[in-house]
Design a protein around this nucleic acid. Structure first.
Length: 189
DNA sequence: CTTAGGATCGCCT
DNA sequence: GGCGATCCTAAGC
């Protein structure tokens, strides 16, 4: 027997769209700062919109690593974006964390973002990495260990799905997931 | 409300 | 050289 692969009640070896749906509502903290995940997107190896689509490179290497670890990449040369690796090592699937409902460390978030409005602190993949101070240093780190902390979602959250945002390929795949009615989404569904 | 442009890194053709 | 899994600001309707 191996130890349980569950982390916050989620098996990260599952397909990324299943993990993405289950992550909605999960509490994510980085060094004690964070909140509830309200928006995610799934990406997979056989997915023209995925960084892993064309195989491993230096940037996306963590996406081909072990499940339950972080894949952090730089977007547009400016922002950081945080993913959770899924499937077995070598597969190349992940879930992009797109928005949080801020719950812990609001003062630090405001200082890092240079903003007061709570609704805008973590309402996008680049924004939440700035608010939580996620950077290249977190790439490849295990989500089960500090500085990361995950806690299971309260059951019964209403999850909605739709097309992913900001991509130009595989537009029809409904792999964006969100907490229904949340005001902390990057955009409404 | 919508649209446009700039910042600036890694990988692609 | 081009183009992003983005964000912010400014301008136009």
């Amino acid at each position: 027997m191996t130890r349980s692969p569950l982390l916050a009640g989620i098996d990260f070896r599952a397909p990324s769209h299943e993990v993405a749906r289950q992550l909605v509502g999960v509490l994510l903290l980085v060094d004690g700062v964070g909140g509830r995940i309200v928006e995610t997107e799934a990406y997979d190896r056989d997915d023209a919109a995925s960084h892993s689509y064309s195989g491993p490179t230096e940037r996306n290497g963590a996406m081909f690593g072990a499940p339950g670890h972080a894949y952090v990449y730089r977007s547009y040369g400016i922002h950081w974006c945080l993913n959770f690796v899924c499937r077995e090592a070598g597969h190349g699937a992940g879930v992009l964390i797109r928005a949080l409902e801020p719950l812990a460390g609001l003062a630090q978030m405001r200082a890092r973002r240079g903003l007061d409005a709570e609704r805008l602190l973590c309402s996008g993949p680049g924004k939440l990495c700035q608010a939580l101070a996620v950077s290249r240093a977190h790439n490849g780190m295990a989500l089960a260990l500090p500085p990361f902390a995950l806690a299971a979602a309260a059951p019964g959250a209403a999850v909605v799905a739709g097309p992913r945002i900001g991509i130009s390929k595989a537009m029809a795949v409904p792999w964006r997931f969100g907490l229904a009615g949340s005001r902390f989404l990057s955009r409404p569904f």
